Simulated scan of single mutants.
Amino acid sequence: MKVNYANFIISAVRPEQFPEDGLPEIGLAGRSNVGKSSLINRMINRKNLARTSSTPGKTQHLNYYRINEDLYFVDFPGYGYAKVSKTQRQVWGKMIEQYLMNREQLRLLLLIIDLRHPPSKDDELMYDWLKHYDLPVCVVATKADKIPRSRWQKHLKIIKDALVLRAGDELIMFSSEVGTGKEELWNVITKHMKDDSDLAETVHVEPGLD
Rank of each mutant, 00 (worst) to 15 (best):
W152C: 05
Y133N: 05
P118D: 15
K182P: 00
V203P: 01
D145P: 06
S175P: 09
N102W: 09
L111N: 08
P119K: 09
R116C: 13
L156I: 00
K131L: 12
A200C: 05
D114E: 03
M126G: 06
K143E: 09
A167M: 03
L165Y: 06
S150E: 15
Y99V: 05
L108F: 07
P119L: 10
R151N: 15
D114C: 06
L199M: 15
I147H: 08
L106P: 00
P119Y: 11
V139N: 00
E183A: 12
D198C: 10
G168L: 01
H192F: 14
D198N: 14
D198V: 13
E97S: 11
K154Q: 13
D123Y: 08
I147P: 02
A162G: 03
L100W: 10
R166A: 04
G168D: 03
K146S: 14
Q88D: 14
Y99I: 10
I158Y: 05
R166L: 12
E184F: 01
V188P: 00
I113C: 10
Q153W: 04
W129M: 02
D114G: 04
T142Q: 04
Y127S: 02
L185M: 11
Q88R: 13
R116F: 11
E170G: 02
D169T: 15
T190N: 13
S150G: 08
Y133V: 10
S150A: 15
W186T: 08
Q88L: 08
P148D: 15
T202N: 14
E124M: 10
V178A: 09
T202Q: 10
D161Y: 03
A162M: 04
G181R: 01
F174A: 05
L106A: 11
N102L: 10
P118Y: 12
K157N: 09
L171S: 08
K94Q: 15
W92T: 06
D196F: 11
M193Q: 09
V188W: 00
G181I: 10
M101Q: 11
N102E: 12
S150T: 14
L108A: 04
T190C: 13
R103I: 04
K160F: 06
D128V: 02
Q88Y: 06
D161Q: 01
E170V: 10
K94A: 13
M126F: 09
H204A: 13
F174V: 09
Q88T: 06
L125R: 12
D169F: 06
K194M: 15
A162E: 09
P118Q: 14
I158F: 02
N102M: 06
D161P: 04
G179W: 01
K121V: 14
E97I: 02
A141K: 07
G93V: 05
Y127Q: 03
